[in-house]
Amino acid sequence: MALLSKKDANLILDPLADNNPITIQVLGICSALAITAELKASVVMSIAVIFVLGVGNVVISLMRNIIPSKIRIIVQLIVVATLVIIVDQVLKAFAYELSKTLSVFVGLIITNCIIMGRFEAFALGNGPWKSFLDGIGNALGYGVILIIVGFFRELLGSGTLFGFPVLGDPIEKTGLYATGYENNGFMIIPPAALIVVGIIIWVQRSRNKALIEEA
């Protein structure tokens, strides 16, 4: 790619797989469990995190030389909270319909460990452009897992994708349900997300042996 040097491209590509924030660093698990019962919620949350992490990383990176190290965590928290409130207010004013579905998740972003983790681990020590790429990359890596988990949970738990019934009607017993198939109510509750994330980690490590730690 001519647009990005190889090193810059890796900042985006690494978190997608080999350094994924959820499956490798095990950050941001809380929201991954909470909101992945529906695919739509997963997509929306991913987009919101991409914005907040991208912008937040740049802001922290620009301030990195003047932030007193004693209060840097609080400063980071204020930056996230400010961004989240701005997003919430702007949505309420200009995209009210969207804000109603989003507002629960937007609030959740403040507590997302990935954001604080990237501020602390990357943005405090790197320039704005690199920090921006790192933020986008990590948010994408987070989003990919969210969407995979959301896909399986909604499909197996409710028999729908994006609210669209793909397996037939469970009440009228059409499609797959005619053969005696039933939705698995367990997939809708949060522990199911933990199991799906566990399976993703398992698959990923069995495909890439370098990720397995020495016992």
């Binding site: 030389n65 007193p68 400063v75």
Partner: peptide, 16 residues
């Protein structure tokens, strides 16, 4: 900037 001085920390926090 001497960012680890107490006075700087307080001023930074207030301004922010």
């Amino acid at each position: 900037v001497k960012t680890d001085k107490n006075s700087y920390t307080v001023v930074f926090a207030i301004v922010m």
